[in-house]
Design a protein around this nucleic acid. Sequence first.
DNA 1: GATCTATGTAGAT
DNA 2: TCTACCTAGATCG
Length: 272
Amino acid sequence: MPEGHKTHFLARVHQTKLGGDAVDASSPQGRFRAGAKQLDGRRLESVQAVGKQLFYRFEDDLHLQIHLGRYGGFKEHPTPAPQPVGQIRLRLSGTTTTLDLSGPTTCRLVSAEERADIAAQIGPDPLAGGRWQDVWPLFQATRRPLGAVLLDQRIVAGIGNIFRAELLFELGLNPLLPANALSEADFRFLWRALVRMMRTGLKYGRIITVTRKEVTGPLTQLNGNDRFRIYGHETCPACDGPVVKTPVGGRPLYQCQRCQSHDAIAPPLELT
DNA sequence: GATCTATGTAGAT
DNA sequence: TCTACCTAGATCG
């Protein structure tokens, strides 16, 4: 269930809880048996997120690449862990913590060269010091709609369907605006908003775009789509008009057509 | 129990 | 642009 905030969050947690440990590795489901066998007993040296990719470096220059895809996820247990439940592709047991990985799109061992190649194909990552100056030329070079460009991991790393919807809504931007029609000042504004949104997601380990003013009760207790302003909603929190769900860039985009009709960044919306 | 849905991507057409 | 793939949880009957 991850966008870029989640991979960075997981990298931190896994580094803290298993970094330095010689791990017991197994594949209860069986589909990563050979890989787990190679990892078994080796020391986990570091964990790093690159956009939505996760890389685990083990001793002897062994690299594990994980992409959670849409359904993938980790469950954490104290070591010794209970019997695995469900389709556990990989179980990594450290001294104090055991991780169960299920449903990843990718879980494989790669060489240091392959790891570098994969990372090189991913655009600047707002959570890893990516700079707007490096992304801006790529926006200028394409007439593809903003809503599609934001999801392109070669251009910016870590944005998924929720961040895209929430960012475009917050800025009041028309998702179909050609990327190269955005002014430099507006692009910088967009970048700042994106970094803030993703950092908040990293802090909580989940995407939260509403602010305390907009909801009752603590942010951490929000459920489901209540954490978002537009994604998964039926009515617009600003104008109370209908939210439409239409495919842009191959994924369903939630949009208030009244509030998001602008070709430049609009004044802040009144959110209630 | 069956069916639907989901924060993603790669490869075929 | 379409389809396949990965899995769990919610919803429906």
